[in-house]
Write a protein that binds this DNA or RNA. Structure first.
Lengths: 334, 334
DNA sequence: AGTCTTCTTGCAACCGGTCTCACAAACGAC
DNA sequence: GTCGTTTGTGAGACCGGTTGCAAGAAGACT
């Protein structure tokens, strides 16, 4: 930069003004400086910029180890597509902190919370009362979570209407004539699981049915969890031919388990998933599932965080996206 | 840091020495400084560190828009898992540059090549003679590519043995008794596609069969490309009941197309995919496919790049991973 | 005791920008 | 022609670390 200043016959200060399009520079001077910059294809050192401006233009994406599994793979990617497009457009970069274990995850959080790494953070895969939020609250780094964080009322978040989506799905099954709906939920401390369970119960209530705890099971969103749960439930002697799974993968597992007993989903039984991953329409039968606008959630998370970073917002920012039941081939009148 | 220095009764220099575990500090002094650091839970400002040390400890992951599609989703994620675990362990961070379009991709490259953003770069999804490599070569930023970059002999890379994998797969089909194998390849300028095509041709040669160009088609690794290609080929009147697809998704498309004509893969026809994505074993029939050790490739890419960054390596670094044919249910004697 | 090492430590320059403040030139008003 | 504004520009402090160099202290050796 000193070079540029010398070559253009001005001072560093003026070059800085030109670079940042600040007012108060004579048009002629500005042009001249720009020419020199062009000619030497100079780009400012971003680290130095970061040091003096106290803003790095980096935003951190912290992904819990639980999110980083097959079952959440596609959610993560779609979200990433949404947010990365948005923040790049605004001139920000995305720093990724992933984890393969609980321990790694804490390390990641700590690393991110360090001074000068990022301006703000997006947290994926939080649990209820997730104590990692503390790191960022303590460090005073603005952040937004994906999924409403239970126990932290003043935190910004984006979410999808998990409760409404689950309720709609289960009500649909009840309307098809099923009496008992096996619920293959995710982990019981996962914020999305909690909301989906509320939706499940609400659907039963709305049809004046009591909720039978034997029909509510917890897993980890995986294929295996759907498969095993259906197997076990049938062995236990539970009477059901409808399943609502809290993930598409678990739904696929449930379908596979039915098939092994000669029961065909979409004909002799009904299975509904959650997420609407792209594979949902490729499998046989194509999966009826609850669609979440994940890409949009990513964009919105970026938008809200950047809004927060610009300051001058008060109160908490949040947005809940509507979910939609996509009816394909895995459901049928019971 | 000045604070810490004052509180410990030493100078900034000494604090810096303690932080970086540099020699030449009296044990007592070191202990005292460490206590003060502990007590105030001080962490050094990484931006400032970056500025004076000229090393950011950031490594950039540049993902072509083409990689960032469903067809390569799982490859990307598995790779990410591998590399992120490795680099985090070494104290580096991962900056992600993704793109939704060709244009974005160029921007990302330029952004990354800027001064002081990253120490080194990993490039995913390059094409043959990919001119974006120029940015990094010109900027003098060390980088490594995933897939051997044609036209740039001196670039570090990791790759899987695409040619060998394809050859093994096609030879397996020929040994099952098929005469004509329809090849659903990826884009013709994708380095992996090129290698897989060589493998396909080599397999035919090894069985003294000529390669008939009508059986070699190009697509984009997608489900649709497999589906459409098989449909079209049957309409054209090509005689085949074996398909080798350059991706699992395309293989799933091919199976779907066969099914619509009443042909069942694994019984009346054989289909082999490439990648061994986790879904490959969930679909019906489970997919015979060529497995690539993607996670390991990610780790290795990280390892080689960090090796390069430490300097004192000469020549180009590279590693080619072996592929493996996983035989499941989508193949059968012809 | 005097000199030479060796070990610790602090000073200050430097990394490459941003930004405040002061000052000079240009302009308009009287 | 003088004075008060406005506008454009530069000097230099500062961001928070790293590092070369010099100097003081302590120990080793004549």
């Amino acid at each position: 930069m000193k070079e540029i200043a010398k070559l253009a016959g001005v001072s560093k200060a003026t070059v800085s003004r030109v670079l940042n399009a600040k007012p108060g520079v004579h048009p002629e001077t500005r042009e001249k400086v720009e020419q020199v910059i062009q000619a030497h294809s100079y780009t400012p050192n971003l680290v130095a910029q970061g040091l003096s401006s106290k803003r790095t233009k980096n935003i951190g994406l912290v992904v819990a180890h639980t999110t980083f599994r097959l079952s959440s793979h596609l959610f993560f990617l779609e979200f990433l597509r949404g947010i990365s497009g948005f923040v790049h457009e605004k001139g920000f970069r995305l720093i990724l902190a992933t984890a393969n274990s609980e321990e790694d995850y804490e390390d990641s959080c700590r690393n991110m919370a360090q001074n000068g790494v990022v301006d703000g953070i997006v947290l994926l895969g939080i649990r209820s009362n997730d104590r990692r939020l503390r790191y960022f609250l303590d460090a005073g780094i603005p952040f937004i979570t994906v999924g409403q964080p239970i126990g932290y009322p003043d935190v910004d978040y984006v979410d999808s209407d998990n409760e409404g989506g689950a309720r709609t799905a289960v009500e649909y099954l009840l309307r098809l004539g099923y009496k008992n709906v096996l619920f293959v939920n995710g982990p019981d401390d996962h914020v999305a699981s909690i909301a989906r369970e509320q939706g499940y119960r609400a659907a039963l209530s709305s049809h004046s049915l009591p909720s039978d705890e034997r029909y509510i099971t917890y897993g980890d969103f995986s294929f295996e969890s759907g498969y095993e749960t259906v197997k076990d439930a049938r062995i236990t002697g539970l009477d059901f031919s409808a399943v609502f799974a809290a993930s598409d993968l678990a739904a696929m597992g449930a379908i596979a388990a039915f098939k092994e007993s000669g029961i065909q989903a979409g004909k002799d039984a009904s299975v509904i998933g959650f997420d609407d991953i792209p594979y949902a329409s490729f499998v046989d039968p194509p999966l009826t599932t609850v669609h979440q606008p994940i890409f949009e959630m990513g964009e919105e998370a970026g938008r809200l965080l950047l809004l927060r970073l610009r300051g001058n917002v008060q109160g908490t920012l949040s947005k809940v996206f509507r979910t939609q039941l996509i009816i394909r081939g895995s459901t049928q009148h019971g």
